[in-house]
């Protein structure tokens, strides 16, 4: 089962407990994600991208506005939400299969079922041979695949991705993006992908939401109408892909910013 996500007029203000000064991270932000859709959120640094993810995952609430999952307001953390960051967040003291089981441990299921489910996800990620290895034995790409296996093992209704490919080298990134696109398509899960890589947004997403600098709000939003949803590499070679990247480039006014 997959969920729809609705952000309605979200404003989030952080107040420093010591100085009393406050920072508005996002202001009057609205966008929605349909079930099974992959929406990329791009924007300059400090536009509140991670704030959005934390509010959707229920780690904290918005100051104003509502976050709705399947039409119901998010009031706290929920087991149906998957979560993946730039860091793989694998526990170094657990081997790979135990790491994949981590998210399942709060669910009512037997040890054997848990192991079976974890092995199933590792099979999908082609990591079965590494099930009893520890994270430091694995390369960055493999670790991030293990993190995806852990995220998918809980059968989430929505997955929140915060720049999951940005710490990888260019080659590993391409391979993992493809792997990822296929898996996401297979499971049909709803995804929000936070990224600063414009190309990545275009080749992976169904739709792109562009945010302004702080305080973040939506300044553009458009569908990516390209074939090969499960093959980002092929998609990037489509002539139209460059046009979308240019549009993002323009929306963010990158040409006005001096490299100096």
């Amino acid at each position: 089962m997959t969920s729809s996500l609705d952000l309605q007029n979200i404003t989030k203000v952080f107040t420093d407990a010591k100085t009393g000064s406050s920072v508005t991270a996002v202001t009057d932000m609205s966008f929605s994600v349909a079930p099974g859709e992959l929406v990329a959120v791009v924007g300059p640094s400090g536009c509140g991208k991670s704030t959005i993810l934390n509010m959707v995952s229920g780690l904290y609430g918005p100051t104003e506005g509502r976050v709705l999952l399947d039409g119901k307001p998010v009031t706290g953390t929920r087991p149906e939400v998957g979560f993946m960051l730039q860091k793989d967040l694998l526990l170094p003291w657990r081997n790979i299969v135990q790491n994949v089981e981590f998210g399942l441990e709060e669910k009512k299921m037997s040890r054997a079922d848990r192991r079976a489910k974890a092995m199933e996800e590792l099979t999908r990620m082609q990591l079965v041979d590494f099930a009893d290895k520890y994270p430091h034995h694995l390369s960055g790409g493999m670790r991030q695949r293990a993190a995806l296996a852990r995220t998918l093992a809980i059968e989430p209704e929505i997955i929140l991705l915060d720049e999951p490919f940005s710490a990888l080298d260019a080659q590993t990134k391409l391979v993992l993006q493809r792997h990822f696109a296929r898996t996401i398509a297979e499971t049909g899960v709803t995804c929000v992908l936070i990224t600063h890589d414009l190309n990545e947004a275009v080749i992976l997403a169904d739709r792109v939401v562009v945010l302004s600098g702080r305080p973040g709000r939506v300044i553009d939003e458009f569908e990516i109408d390209l074939p090969h949803r499960t093959d980002p590499l092929k998609r990037s070679l489509e002539p139209q892909a460059g046009v979308y990247v240019k549009r993002l480039f323009d929306a963010l006014h990158l040409e006005d910013q001096d490299a100096a």
Partner: peptide, 19 residues
Amino acid sequence: DLVNLARVYSMNRWTIFRK
């Protein structure tokens, strides 16, 4: 971030402490 991950997986304070 590890603590947040555990919180997203609905683990309580004691479980987060242990795990």
